[in-house]
Design a binder for these strands. Structure first.
Lengths: 244, 244
DNA sequence: GCGAGTTTGCGAACAGTGTGCGGACGACCG
DNA sequence: CGGTCGTCCGCACACTGTTCGCAAACTCGC
């Protein structure tokens, strides 16, 4: 980090050395998260991360065995941002589930790089923060009136929808950030391309024409809300069937 | 490719040369897809792909400007595998939508590497095969009774659920393939880990205990079906409300 | 107080990546 | 026949994750 004109044995400054432990796993994970949020997935290299920590790249390996493991830790950290509402009154379930879904979406959109790392999630669900999230979700849906096993399925259903939808949104956002485009201009160009295909794809071109004057982000959000309501409706009629 | 003892100008075999065009975009995409399916995402390097085509790595760049562009082409190819059912009778919509959802899930699970490339999907929806898919989906939901704009939202809802759920499944599968584990053994170890957390996570440990003797893949599928039914229910009551 | 052992930091090196450059070559057009 | 064009590809560059081995510093038993 601090450059050294003569890297000779004598001139060595303080060897940076072992002053205090200097590096900790928490620090590393936090810095990785900051790097990811500000510059995206391809900015996270071990060398850059090391530099950001005023350390060498390989120093990280004392606290984390792998880049994959590091990413798992970061992902679990992100899961920790999601707060699961607690309810006692079963009639409050719908609002609570909706709030959970919205918060999960917001979390994904706050860290859009997470979708390029989705294939690591298969194991990371053993992470403590995700365990808490799952536990809270089971709690929520049990309080709503589902049995334990069905509460799990209901939760997976809702989270599946949110994950799929928000992933698509995040893909658009990262693409825009990478190319430096504006979301409005981009959707204009898509609309133009779609309207050029009237003959083969009449509904698509009609669809884009109908949405000419909508703000893209407001449109994305209202689409999300539409699906969320349908999902909650589906759960609600199932709950009604269970009660009778 | 064919090794040459003396790479001198005279001894040169036939320079392989320009016999026939030898490489085409279709060929490259097909070979990339084969490579991805058989060995996963990290096996796809330009050098390996070139070698698989009996060509040099950089030859590919004449037909495709980028690795990212190549991946977009491959993704669109995969979308082409999804067949959208056509209906005329509105009452057949539920079955048709369910079939579409199942087929999309099957397609994702057939190409599980696709989730590690999800962040490219943001633009690739301009690909012709995906356009066809979208057009067909709009058709389906319009025939079911939705207006054009709402048909789009309904389709995004259903596909969002499928994408999210199948992504999670694919993540598990690729993880297993990478580590060489068996799905059954893996779910056993997860269950063991979960039951050890009774104090802090009672519902999770109870949940895993209750599912001790289920076959993991059958369980995944039934969870998917559960969510699919809820999603279709949600759409159905909306349709009923529209009709009255 | 002091040597032994463990932990941490890190420079060098290795195998591998995507891709720009420039040359070579075959095919086609005038 | 000459020139231009598109394709093929070896080389090189800047980068990646990770291993190895060594040096420094902290911890602990005596």
């Amino acid at each position: 980090m601090e450059d050294q004109p003569f890297p000779s044995v004598w001139t060595r400054p303080r060897r940076s050395g072992r002053a205090q432990p200097a590096l900790s796993r928490e620090q590393i994970v936090a810095e990785a998260l900051r790097l990811l949020d500000s510059e995206g997935i391809e900015a996270l290299s071990m060398r850059r991360l090391g530099a950001a920590l005023n350390a060498g790249a390989t120093s990280i390996y004392s606290h984390v065995s792998n880049k994959d493991e590091l990413i798992e830790l970061v992902i679990d950290e992100v899961y920790g941002e999601v707060e699961v509402p607690e309810i006692t009154d079963p009639s409050a379930w719908r609002e609570a589930a909706g709030a959970l879904a919205r918060e999960l979406r917001a979390t994904i959109l706050r860290h859009p790089w997470i979708i390029s790392v989705l294939d690591e999630l298969g194991l990371s669900y053993m992470g403590p923060k995700l365990m808490n999230l799952s536990e809270g979700m089971l709690n929520l849906f049990e309080a709503a009136g589902f049995g334990l096993v069905e509460a799990d399925q209901a939760g997976k259903f809702l989270l599946g929808y949110v994950l799929g939808t928000a992933s698509t949104e995040a893909a658009v956002l990262t693409r825009l950030a990478r190319t430096g485009w504006d979301e409005r201009a981009w959707s204009e160009s898509v609309r133009a391309a779609a309207t050029a295909l009237v003959r083969t794809h009449p509904r698509m071109s009609a669809l884009y024409a109908a949405q000419e004057h909508r703000e893209p982000d407001e449109f994305r959000e209202s689409s999300f809300t539409y699906g969320l309501e349908r999902a909650l409706d589906g759960l609600e009629i199932r709950l009604r069937a269970l009660r009778s």
